[in-house]
C-alpha cells in the first residue's frame, strides 16, 4: 500500500512547495531594476548553484535540481517520461538538422531527456534509427528523409513535433493517473489549436494541417482543420462548443496571451494537488509547477535584459502554483 501512496515523497514535496515562488515573489522580481538585480534576488532565494552564474545557467541548475529531487523520491523515474519526451524529440530534431547542415554546435540540445544526446546524434549520423526507442523509428526516418530530399525544415519539425505530442499523450494515458491524462489531453489540444490559428494566418493546406495536428479526444481534428481553412472566426466558433471556449479571448488578444492561457490552465489543473497527501499526482504537479516557475522567471529575466516596460512583462506573467 505505502509504495503506491508515495507518502514519503509527497510529504517532502509539501515542504519543498514552501520554496516555490509565489505571486509576491514575482512582484518583488518585477520591481528589480535590472536583470542583475533579479539574479541576485533569485540567488538569495536559493536559486542556482553558485549564486553567480548567468541567467540560463541558473535556470538550467534549477531544472536539474527538480529532476535530482525526483530521482531521490521515485525509484523508477520513467513514470515521468511524458514530461521528457518533448526534450527527446527536440534533441532528435536538433540532431537531424545538425547532421544535415554539418555543424558542430552542441548548445542546441536540452540535457534533460530520457535518451542521451550522444546516442541520438550517433543514430542520426549513422542513419541507424533502430538504436533509438521504437516510438522514434518511423518518425525519425521520415523527418530525416524529408529534410534530406526537400530541405524543408518546417516539415521536418512538424513530423517530429506531432510524434512528440502523440507519444506524450500515449504515456500520459498509460499512466492511469487522471491528472496526467488530463494534462496530456490539454497539451495536445493547445498545440492543435495553435497549429490551426497559425495555419490559418499562413494559409496552410488541409494536408499540412492534418499532418501537423496530433489527435486527442477533446477536439475533432477534422473539424478544427476545416475551420482553420475557412477563417479565424470559424475556429472561434468551433472552439465555443469545446472545453476550450475560454481560449478564444486569449487567441484574439495575441499568441503570447494564448500561451499564457495554456500555462494558466495547467496551473488550474494541478492546483488541487496541493491538498492531496497521496499518489504520484502531487509529484507530477510539483514538476509542472517548477517548469511554470522557470518559464515565468525566464520571461521576466529576458524582459529586464531587453529593457521591456514592466507593464508589458507583467502581462506575460503566469499564474503561480502557490
Amino acid at each position: 500500500m505505502a509504495e503506491q501512496l508515495y507518502a514519503y515523497a509527497v510529504a517532502r514535496i509539501r515542504s519543498k512547495e514552501l520554496q516555490l515562488l509565489g505571486r509576491s515573489d514575482v512582484d518583488q522580481l518585477l520591481n528589480c531594476k535590472s536583470e542583475k538585480e533579479c539574479l541576485k534576488l533569485l540567488a538569495e532565494k536559493g536559486w542556482g548553484k553558485t549564486g553567480e552564474e548567468s541567467s540560463e545557467a541558473m535556470l538550467k541548475a534549477e531544472r536539474e535540481k527538480t529532476w535530482d529531487l525526483m530521482k531521490e523520491l521515485v525509484e523508477d523515474t520513467s513514470v515521468f517520461d511524458m514530461f521528457l519526451y518533448t526534450n527527446d524529440y527536440h534533441n532528435l530534431k536538433a540532431a537531424v538538422k545538425q547532421v544535415y547542415t554539418d555543424t558542430k554546435d552542441m548548445d542546441i540540445y536540452i540535457t534533460q531527456g530520457t535518451i542521451e544526446i550522444g546516442m541520438i546524434l550517433d543514430a542520426v549520423r549513422e542513419h541507424n534509427f533502430s538504436a533509438l526507442p521504437e516510438h522514434m523509428h518511423s518518425c525519425a526516418e521520415e523527418a530525416y528523409q524529408v529534410l534530406l530530399r526537400t530541405g524543408d525544415s518546417q516539415l521536418c519539425d512538424v513530423i517530429l513535433d506531432r510524434a512528440a505530442l502523440e507519444m506524450m499523450l500515449v504515456k500520459c494515458k498509460e499512466s492511469k493517473v487522471e491528472l496526467l491524462a488530463r494534462y496530456g489531453e490539454l497539451r495536445v489540444a493547445a498545440a492543435d489549436i495553435n497549429i490551426a490559428v497559425r495555419g490559418n494566418k499562413t494559409h496552410k493546406s488541409k494536408e499540412f494541417l492534418e499532418r501537423a495536428m496530433a489527435g486527442c479526444s477533446s477536439l475533432d481534428k477534422k473539424k478544427l482543420s476545416s475551420a482553420a481553412l475557412e477563417s479565424l472566426e470559424a475556429i472561434y466558433q468551433y472552439l465555443q462548443f469545446t472545453d476550450y471556449s475560454d481560449a478564444v479571448e486569449a487567441i484574439k488578444e495575441s499568441s503570447s496571451a494564448f500561451e499564457r492561457w495554456c500555462d494558466n490552465r495547467i496551473m488550474d489543473l494541478i492546483r488541487p494537488q496541493k491538498s492531496n497527501p497521496f499518489t504520484i499526482s502531487p509529484l507530477a504537479a510539483y514538476i509542472l509547477a517548477r517548469e511554470n516557475e522557470i518559464k515565468t522567471v525566464r520571461i521576466l529575466l529576458s524582459g529586464k535584459r531587453n529593457d521591456i516596460p514592466d507593464s508589458a512583462i507583467r502581462e506575460r506573467m503566469r499564474d503561480m502554483y502557490v
Binding site: 505505502a2 514519503y8 515523497a9 510529504a11 517532502r12 519543498k16 497527501p277
Partner: peptide, 18 residues
C-alpha cells in the same frame, strides 16, 4: 502497524526537509 508505518513514511519526508 500499517498505520504507524504509513504515517512514519510521511513523517520521514517532513523531517528530511526540516
Amino acid at each position: 502497524a500499517k498505520g504507524v508505518g504509513l504515517a512514519g513514511e510521511a513523517g520521514s519526508g517532513v523531517v528530511t526537509e526540516d
